[in-house]
């Protein structure tokens, strides 16, 4: 680990000032400390922001504001989340281990970096995300866990978060703060596709701090779930995951939210499938057709072609389960 200075921010303005001077925000450390030890990351200064916002509060318009310092465990355990946004509680509980969820924060979870093993192999492998322009050894290597959607020649990595997949489906809004003020972003616009700049994971400006994640009011969210498909029965990253919420009236899909994990460089909101389903009869065929459409542009690598069919099947099954349609 490269030496660094450590400061704990007592309030937001102090955090921003420390970041201005080159500090890197530190949440629970479950990803950043690992990456620093692996020498993937070399921040010269860390700013502990875990103490800044640990509140979960209902907003005036019926949504929920979640402080960026809230731990994953606390969020999943919160009665409002469990009752009104079960997909979010389920997604969090499907991730990592209890110990890690007790440490990891909401803000940190959003900024997790990929689990691509070539990204981690600092000395021995080429990675455009680590050293732009040097090449990507994941192509042609072990890429079973890699992207099938939205990848580029430069990068085929996936975003590893479960929580973000649920947030993407829920139209969550990320609250940001920087020296130049505050702004909000839809979560679906926080993360980038790799393109020819895979070293940049998000659209955050330098020094910009995630202060909160807001869940808008959405009655559909109460009827939602998360399904994660992985190699181990627990404590493994998703090969494919699906966050879904659906409302069916008189046999027709009145509203639907769908997002996929494990398939792309960002949490993948399945807008195309959603559009196809709205107003359609809730049937297995319609669900499958929507899944087919969403994956129509999927491009397999040598090891991960199975993810295309797996994603289709999982989407179809999750929608069928939520809609009460026999599979």
């Amino acid at each position: 680990m490269t030496p660094f200075s450590f400061n704990r921010a007592t309030d937001q303005s102090e955090a921003l000032q420390l970041a201005e001077r080159g500090g890197r925000y530190l949440g629970g450390g479950t990803n950043l400390v690992d990456l620093m030890r692996e020498t993937v990351e070399h921040p010269a200064a860390l700013v502990d922001v875990t103490g800044l916002s640990r509140d979960i509060a209902e907003t005036p318009d019926g949504g929920v504001m979640i402080g960026a310092g809230v731990t994953n465990s606390a969020l999943a355990a919160h009665p409002t989340i469990r009752a009104r946004y079960p997909v979010l509680a389920r997604a969090i509980l499907a991730g990592a281990s209890a110990q890690i969820r007790n440490m990891a924060t909401v803000g940190g979870n959003l900024l997790q970096r990929t689990r691509c093993t070539y990204f981690y192999d600092v000395e021995g492998s080429r990675c455009n995300k680590r050293r732009p322009g040097e090449g990507c050894d994941a192509r042609g290597g072990f890429n079973r866990i890699h992207a099938i959607l939205g990848a580029s020649d430069a990068c085929v990595a996936t975003h590893p978060s479960d929580m973000c997949v649920a947030l993407a489906a829920l139209d969550a809004v990320v609250h940001l703060s920087s020296a130049s003020g505050t702004r909000t972003l839809p979560l679906t616009e926080l993360h980038r596709l790799p393109g020819d700049q895979p070293q940049i994971d998000t659209v955050l400006h330098p020094g910009e701090l995630i202060t909160a994640v807001e869940l808008p009011a959405a009655s559909i969210a109460a009827h939602s779930t998360y399904r994660k498909v992985r190699d181990r029965a627990s404590y493994a990253f998703a090969l494919v995951s699906v966050a879904a919420a659906i409302a069916v009236e008189d046999g027709r899909v009145s509203d639907v939210r769908l997002a996929l994990g494990g398939v792309a460089h960002k949490p993948w909101r399945a807008s195309r499938a959603e559009e196809m389903l709205r107003g359609k009869a809730a049937s297995l065929d319609a669900f499958r057709a929507a899944a087919e459409a969403e994956l129509a542009d999927a491009v397999p690598l040598n090891d991960n072609g199975f993810k295309i069919e797996l994603a289709k099947r999982t989407m179809t099954a999750v929608l069928a389960e939520l809609a009460g349609v026999d599979a």
Partner: peptide
Amino acid sequence: GACTVLVDGERIISCLALAVQYD
């Protein structure tokens, strides 16, 4: 998980915990 300890009664993994963060 071999490094699991309790912090204020809650379990964490101590290997990814910077000690200075636990004052």
